[in-house]
């Protein structure tokens, strides 16, 4: 019997779901924190937020951030060391992104098991960059005195808040597209839980 090669290796699956928990808690509590002093003409409805009140929201936010940061560091270290980033995200050319975007918009971009198309590569790299931006701008909001150099880098306390909000918005948009695509191609979901199995060398896809 041939060795079973999963679509998503176990460490990746664990990190994916830990990250999902951290992100949901951070966004929900972050909305509650934003509501305490909104800088745009709207607030998030209470039912969408986590923490009940500002004190609870900050407590959840500053607890979940440790999960996000530790898990994120493991992910970056693992992705680089294992060659996952190099194999899955590279090469990435503007031409390929344009080609695959055009195909995707005409619903002619097939899902290839175990291979990311150029749009996926761009979005995954983009959301990793947004995650790093969210952590750095969040640190600048948290410690504008002790981490004054980081606060200055973003242009001060208020602009750090705005950057943090924009990073969150980008991540929310990513999640919306990500979840929509899973809804359109539901067979990708079990693979992120059980690992799934890569197609046999003869090209037949073996369903897990």
């Amino acid at each position: 019997m041939a060795k079973r090669v999963p679509i998503h290796p176990l460490p990746l699956r664990i990190m994916h779901w830990l990250n999902a928990i951290a992100i949901v808690v951070l966004i929900g509590s972050g909305w509650e924190i934003y509501d305490a002093s909104p800088f745009l003409p709207f607030t998030f409805p209470q039912w969408m937020t986590i923490g009940q009140w500002l004190g609870g929201a900050i407590a959840w936010h500053l607890a979940a951030i440790w999960l996000l940061m530790l898990n994120g560091l493991f992910y970056l270290g693992w992705g680089i060391a294992s060659g996952h980033f190099r194999r899955k995200f590279l090469p990435l050319s503007p031409r390929a992104v344009l080609r695959d975007t055009a195909a995707a918009l005409r619903f002619r971009l097939p899902h290839e098991v175990g291979v990311y198309n150029a749009v996926q590569r761009l979005l995954y790299l983009g959301v990793i960059a947004l995650g790093i931006l969210a952590v750095l701008s969040g640190l600048a909001v948290w410690k504008p005195v002790q981490l004054w150099w980081l606060s200055d880098l973003f242009g001060g306390f208020f602009i750090s808040r705005v950057v943090h909000f924009c990073a969150m918005t980008g991540i929310v948009l990513f999640i919306a597209v990500h979840v929509l695509l899973v809804a359109l191609v539901p067979r990708v979901l079990p693979a992120m839980i059980t690992g799934g199995r890569l197609p046999e060398p003869d090209g037949r896809e073996v369903r897990p």
Binding site: I33, A36, S37, F39, L54, I58, P144, F157, F158, R161
Partner: peptide, 10 residues
Amino acid sequence: TRLICVEGWR
């Protein structure tokens, strides 16, 4: 100096 409130305003 700047006073930053836990609510986010300063």
